[in-house]
Simulated assay, not measured.
Amino acid sequence: MSKPEKVFKSTTDQLKLLQERGLVIDDPMFAEEALIRTSYYEIINGYKDLFINIDSEEEQFESGTTFSEIYYLYELDNTIRFAMLSATLSAENLLRSVIAYVLAENHGHSIKDYQQNRNFRQGKKIIRGRAKGKFERELLLQIFSEVYYSTHQPMTYYRETYQDMPPWILVKGLSFGNLQYLFKLMLPESKTKVIARATGMNPELITDQTKQAFAETFDILVAFRNWAAHGGRVYNHRVRKRLSYSPTHTRFGVTHSAYQKHDRGQSDVLSFIIALSYLRDRGIQDGFLHAITSEIDDYLMRFPRHKTLLLRQMNIPDQLYQEWRHNRQH
């Protein structure tokens, strides 16, 4: 059976509908202003799930749920989203710098030198999309060419002035996803150098397992960045990529049992935090943790009864949250 057609409702009608469904409009003027400024869809449809009575046949809110509880959850998520975008931008800048350095060091600063087949793995044959039938390396070099002939600065300046483009300029024209693609196709020696410079690890301790773990952190960072950049709900989101269980998880108090049973640290916000922890710039992770713990604190000061529910949705154990709070306050 098809669902009834969605029809326009005024802000007043929207508030009446919410009241009919059991939501307490604790501050009518505030609620009306919030719906005008943000929209019913963004606030209610985006964040109502935690407050719906699952035992009710018709959609009804849990008894006593207020509009403010939903609205401030929306605000909490907004703050986390912006903090996530800021963190991924910093991580992206670090990785651009490191990858450009390694390209120049290993293969030269001229595009005719570093843009050679021998400098990259062939990769898999592409089975769909614009590069169908080509190997991944061909697509990567095609992306390089598109950046070289870009009409954006500073690529245009270097092309027209020097008829060349060093890696530290070319990477500015790559998306975060393309930068990840470049890392994927780098030769083993180059990957080792990138990981060592990006994390501060001793190159002699970097194994194939380390490289796989670092590739997964890249996946997680790009996946969350793209989701956040498109305005998706992030506080309880699970991306399609996954971090494998590692000793780093134990430093966050995540047991193998919790990893398997609750997916903790696999593809949730905690996995994003663990991914940030690999980077040598500890300020990126610390800044993100400060932002989210501060915002969670603010929400729970208003609505303390939702502590267990909120942390469970975020897949963050209370003990770890308390540790972050302690670190922030000291």
Rank of each mutant, 00 (worst) to 15 (best):
Y148G: 08
E105D: 10
G64W: 00
A104H: 02
H107M: 02
N78A: 08
T88S: 15
E59T: 10
H107V: 01
L170R: 14
K125C: 13
D77L: 08
F82K: 12
N117R: 12
Q163N: 13
E57W: 05
S150R: 11
G46T: 01
F82Y: 15
I80S: 01
Q163D: 10
G129R: 06
Y71W: 07
I126R: 07
I54A: 08
I126M: 07
E75D: 05
G108T: 05
S68L: 11
I70Q: 11
E59Q: 10
N78D: 07
S56Y: 02
K125F: 10
K112F: 04
I70C: 12
Y158E: 02
R130A: 15
R96M: 02
V171L: 05
S97I: 00
I99H: 00
I111T: 03
K125P: 03
R121K: 13
I44E: 01
S145D: 15
F67Y: 12
A131G: 12
E57F: 09
N117W: 02
F61G: 05
Q115I: 06
S110C: 03
E42P: 00
S86H: 12
Q153T: 11
F82A: 07
L95G: 03
Q116H: 15
F82S: 11
S90N: 14
Y47R: 09
K134T: 10
N93Q: 13
T88A: 04
S63P: 05
L141D: 06
E92F: 11
S145V: 06
V98Q: 06
Y158N: 03
G129K: 06
N78L: 13
L170P: 09
Y158A: 05
L95Y: 02
Y101N: 07
Y47V: 10
G64L: 01
N53P: 05
V98S: 03
S97N: 07
Y162L: 14
Y114A: 00
M155D: 11
E59K: 05
L50E: 12
G129I: 11
L140V: 14
N106C: 11
I127H: 08
